[in-house]
């Protein structure tokens, strides 16, 4: 595997971060959000919490999809935070046509919209379905897998904040081991979510041999935009899994959303990669590897790991998971290969 997405030789990082300043990259590669003429899929005034990773991820993703299609998109939404905070009746934040049906059927509804566009001869209108991790990896999984295997012309974006946040932070199949949620309390001899459970949806999506699968993060917004634009240039079923910290559910500071998202990738727990037709085609190399503690410590959901000596073995186990990712996706290769 090599970093085929590598384009820029010299990096200009903003101070104290690994974010490339918008004004320092050439115009063609500047963020959608940096443009005066930027699209605006989700307008301000919605009811998301301060520091909401999902609101940020959805805005960047949908704006990029709008730019890639000349505004010719229809959005479908699963029930969840994004649906609730963008449409408090009678208001709506959506500047694109938007349909919410149920919690578990966003992928199927999107398939229906795509079918209607095909039959109406309006295939220039593209469909983006969205859901949280619960709506995607759990209750919506059947419909999602069906949409994948039929290779319907839908981009499905999962905003993964690793639990059911809208209902008050319950465990989902995307919740990491040891994380405290309302249904995996930090109590007893094995506090938090248990090891050896959960599913890796990007890999499952790849197993469907669909044209495009990617993971992305709100810490790498240029990369997220690029992946969405790439996905919109492809026909068929596509899947992007975006890592979106949730200050409320994770017990983290609102101003730490981007930092935590970056640490999740830099420690190896959330690898950033892309795949076409079931084969991995690229990944973002870790620039400066950090121990998992750096990522875990600022979050109250992992506080029990640091309370006394008990957490050491569990932290080590999480570190082994991160190291396995680093090996599997070759994340510690030469930094020269690292893409933007």
């Amino acid at each position: 595997m090599s970093g085929k997405t590598s384009e820029q030789k010299i990096k200009f990082y903003q101070k104290g971060t690994f974010t490339v300043g918008n004004r320092l990259v050439d115009e063609a590669r500047r963020s959608v959000q940096g443009s005066m003429e930027r699209s605006n899929a989700i307008t301000s005034g919605h009811r998301a919490c301060q520091g909401c990773g999902e609101a940020l991820g959805a805005r960047y993703a949908l704006d990029a999809a709008m730019r890639a299609t000349g505004g010719q998109i229809i959005a479908v939404n699963a029930t969840g935070c994004l649906e609730v905070f963008t449409t408090p009746y009678p208001e709506t934040s959506w500047q694109v046509p938007w349909l919410h049906s149920l919690f578990g059927n966003a992928a199927a509804v999107a398939s229906g919209v795509a079918a209607a566009m095909r039959v109406k001869g309006r295939e220039q209108v593209r469909v983006v379905a969205q859901g949280g991790d619960g709506g995607t990896t759990d209750i919506g999984f059947g419909c999602l897998s069906g949409m994948f295997e039929r290779n319907d012309d839908v981009l499905y974006i999962c905003y993964d904040n690793e639990a059911y946040m809208n209902t008050g932070v319950q465990r989902s199949s995307a919740t990491p081991p040891t994380a405290r949620t309302a249904t995996t309390p930090a109590a007893g001899p094995k506090p938090g979510n248990v090891f050896g459970t959960g599913k890796n949806l990007p890999l499952i999506a790849m197993a469907h041999n669909i044209p495009y699968v990617a993971t992305a993060s709100v810490a790498h917004l240029h990369d997220l935009e690029r992946k969405v634009e790439k996905a919109m240039a492809i026909r068929g079923a596509r899947y992007i899994h975006v890592f979106v910290p949730c200050p409320l559910g994770w017990g983290s500071a609102s101003h730490d959303t981007i930092r935590l998202a970056r640490l999740a990738s830099e420690c190896g727990l959330f690898p950033l990669f892309e795949a076409e037709h079931g084969e991995i085609t690229g990944s973002i190399a870790i620039r400066r590897k950090v121990p998992v503690e750096d990522y875990l410590k600022p979050q109250k959901r992992f506080a029990h790991l640091f309370k006394d000596g008990d957490g050491i073995e569990r932290i080590a186990r999480l570190q082994r998971m991160a190291d396995a990712n680093i090996k599997r996706f070759d994340l510690q290769r030469d930094a020269k290969e690292a893409p933007l």
């Binding site: 229809i74 479908v76 349909l99 049906s101 149920l102 578990g104 059927n105 199927a108 509804v109 999107a110 398939s111 229906g112 919209v113 795509a114 079918a115 209607a116 566009m117 039959v119 109406k120 059947g142 419909c143 897998s145 069906g146 295997e149």
Partner: peptide, 18 residues
Amino acid sequence: ESEFAALSVAIGSSAAGA
């Protein structure tokens, strides 16, 4: 892949004018 999907696809296509 299921009746739940059958009617969900129908919801999408009907809302999109088919």
